[in-house]
Write a protein that binds this DNA or RNA. Structure first.
Lengths: 280, 280
DNA sequence: CACCTCTTATACCGTGCAGGTATGAATGAG
DNA sequence: CTCATTCATACCTGCACGGTATAAGAGGTG
């Protein structure tokens, strides 16, 4: 009984996502029979049935579902590792740091200024990234570091908290909840909330905070926003209300789990020196 | 240019650990020439030199050092994944939970009792494990859950804090520091501290708390211990002193990153219901 | 300095396995 | 009943993984 190979995980994930061997094979650029065989081999190796298949339909078993989640994690870890090592080898490559527009971008500029003044610090490329894709960029190696704001999935990342901002509820003008001077998170339960691309759930998809405010102003959703955003964008069609007892809105610096690069460590230290007012 | 395969990572790690192609090949059970070729192929794939080799000695390049850390992580993740999936498929397998002897073991018994009373909860195997090897057991799949106490490496784990204990300094009777009624962590800087097997640094190696107290009693080291241990083991040859401003000694429940098993989630919930007096 | 040892690199060969093609079998659609 | 779709089976091919033999370079040693 041999070891599971990376290729088999790639194949498995493709099939699990397509739930169709032929289409998955197409996507992988191989023929269908070798793919079927590879998946069977993986099943034999693990001694586990991963798919229930009859001649028409393919479905994941519970074990398959569990594997899908873990295999995806391994694949993105590997993709990120590859990118990081390739870059680490060529010295003088700039550090790539990402944050969304808004307060985080401002903090990023400040940290970068502090950092580049340090001896031995390489140049920094600032990547502006879309709504809530910062974590994914770090995981798969498109960026070395990110400033993150909740919600995010911490898996595969290491974090240091930098700063906290109180949260405000953003409501369309005239919304019934605007009668209350302050709100609790529970008041917003069940209301449509905007979500980033790739997240599922109800509510409209937005790519940046301008779009987010727009959908709130149009009455399509309510949102939780950090106070700086409320201060920076007063709008006649939006009413902001402070929230009591909400989770704090913590801005953290994040890097890939296991990334022990000198430049990354230096940047994190620079960030903590500037902003570390938050206990771990 | 094809994808990096697991086999190549395994080979790379073996060479990086042995720093000798022949011995590494031996350990892997293959001949030396194919191993050399595989490593060269990995270097070509990554477009990175991983080793500086002349005909006598092999050393890691900085890029190789970075890869070693990440590759080890990927390999243990894979080993754990394999074990978890294999077990997940065979329902009715008991949940394996580990903790070191002492207070954590007592908590573990209490949680287990609470848990097994729940509907649909499978049996629980309690594994007693050695000093500070709990995290490794969860990472590589030998256990599903662990109760952890600091210090530990959180990489690859997800954690929930359960309880805190104040720390005490354990000093040999007659030690100069025993003159002070309370101590600060800085007072212990530079003194020999016991360490677990596999950790490096100065200080004697111990495998359990009995050994730990023994080396303190013999004057070979000083140690930080949770208060329950001090209460449970009064000894004439050891003096305990409370510590001010020390990091709290937090006992957490931990499971493998990405493990979304029903049984694990239920166990964590049971643990939190019993003990969750610690904010996250 | 010659010789031996140790270690990695090169050359060459065989075979196992990944991947391709052709086709069968099962099942749902019309 | 027929056709389309989809997964499984059978068989073939080529490559790359692994093995053996050996060269080449670098220390150590008398």
């Amino acid at each position: 009984m041999n070891e599971v190979e990376f290729r088999e995980l790639r194949y498995f994930v493709a099939v699990a996502e397509e739930l169709n061997f032929s289409r998955a094979a197409d996507r992988l650029g191989i023929a269908q029979p070798p793919l079927s065989r590879a998946v069977r081999q993986l099943e034999r190796r693990l001694d586990v049935r991963l798919f229930d298949r009859d001649t028409r339909t393919v479905t994941l078993t519970p074990a398959g579902l569990a594997l899908l989640d873990e295999a995806r994690h391994v694949l993105t870890t590997m993709a990120g590792l590859t990118r990081r090592i390739r870059r680490a080898a060529h010295p003088g490559t700039p550090l790539r740091v990402t944050a969304k527009a808004g307060m985080a971008a401002g903090m990023l500029r400040a940290i970068t200024g502090h950092y580049t003044a340090l001896p031995g610090a390489p140049a920094v490329d600032i990547l502006v990234s879309g709504y809530r894709e910062q974590a994914a960029m770090v995981r798969d190696g498109r960026a070395d570091l990110a400033l993150l704001t909740p919600p995010y999935e911490a898996r595969g990342l290491e974090l240091e908290a930098l700063a906290e901002e109180p949260r405000m509820a953003a409501l369309p003008t005239g919304h019934p909840l605007t009668r209350h001077p302050t709100l609790h998170p529970a008041d917003l339960e069940g209301l449509p909330m905007p979500r980033g691309p790739g997240e599922d759930g109800p509510g409209p998809v937005v790519h940046d905070s301008a779009q987010l405010l727009e959908v709130v102003g149009l009455g399509q959703a309510v949102a939780l926003v950090p106070r700086y955003l409320a201060d920076a964008h007063p709008r006649p069609d939006i009413v902001y209300r402070p929230l009591r007892d909400a989770d704090p809105y913590t801005i953290s610096v994040a890097w890939a789990e296991g990334n022990r690069s000198q430049a990354v460590a230096l940047f994190v230290r620079a960030a903590l020196e500037l902003y570390a007012d938050v206990p771990d």
